[in-house]
């Protein structure tokens, strides 16, 4: 069924040039990750007072940590579970370069959903926008013939889990971010 969905979606490649150009940008390694990082940078500066800014800065730190956590978990699973990319087993039109590493799980979905979840836990609207972007990124990877849907679903679950784990860790080790913030606040960097 996984393969059938990829073939069905990828069948649309080449029918609408403008949509393909849009999806080429969406599946890029440089759009959604950078956009998510920019939201985290913005959160570092955003706040109406020191207390709200401090909470936003913790969210930004959780977001950065979640990206690292999701990458780590995906790398471990990638190393343990080998699954060839869909283009190797199916006749697909690639909208993206052909990666050679394991397809399962999707690193892109992991990163996208990790940032979205970290932000969603503090700002619902911005978080939902990031979820939409992460979904488009994952969908685009299936459309482009780079991932199976199950790769993206599991990657997304890993991203969400990484964000929750990091949030819990920050609550447990709250003294460390507070100390860093205190030092940074002293020189007006936080």
């Amino acid at each position: 069924m996984d393969g059938a969905i990829v073939r069905w979606l990828n069948d649309g490649v080449g029918r609408f040039t403008l949509f393909d150009r849009f999806m080429e940008a969406m599946v890029s390694d440089y759009l959604v990750p950078l956009f998510g990082s920019l939201v985290l940078i913005g959160l570092w500066f955003y706040g109406t007072d020191n207390a709200s800014r401090a909470a936003n800065q913790v969210t930004a730190a959780i977001g950065i940590g979640s990206i690292g956590g999701a990458n780590l978990i995906v790398a471990i699973v990638n190393a343990l579970v080998w699954r060839p990319r869909p283009a190797l087993d199916n006749d697909l039109t690639l909208l993206f370069y052909g990666p050679t590493d394991s397809s399962f799980p999707s690193n892109a979905a992991g990163v996208g959903f990790a940032v979205a979840t970290a932000v969603f836990l503090r700002y619902r609207r911005i978080g939902l926008s990031l979820y939409a972007l992460a979904f488009l990124w994952g969908f685009g990877r299936v459309y482009a013939g780079v991932h199976y849907p199950s790769d993206v679903i599991v990657g997304a679950l890993i991203g969400v889990a990484a964000a929750f784990i990091l949030t819990g860790l920050f609550r447990l080790l709250t003294i460390i971010p507070r100390y860093i913030q205190m030092v940074a606040r002293w020189v007006y960097l936080a």
Binding site: Y30, L34, I41, G42, L43, F45, T48
Partner: peptide
């Protein structure tokens, strides 16, 4: 350059919204 220019823009947005 992309990261640099985008960060300039984002900091302006965040600072303006925060009254900095």
């Amino acid at each position: 350059v992309l990261a640099f220019v985008c960060t300039l823009g984002v900091v302006q947005i965040a600072a303006a919204r925060s009254g900095l």
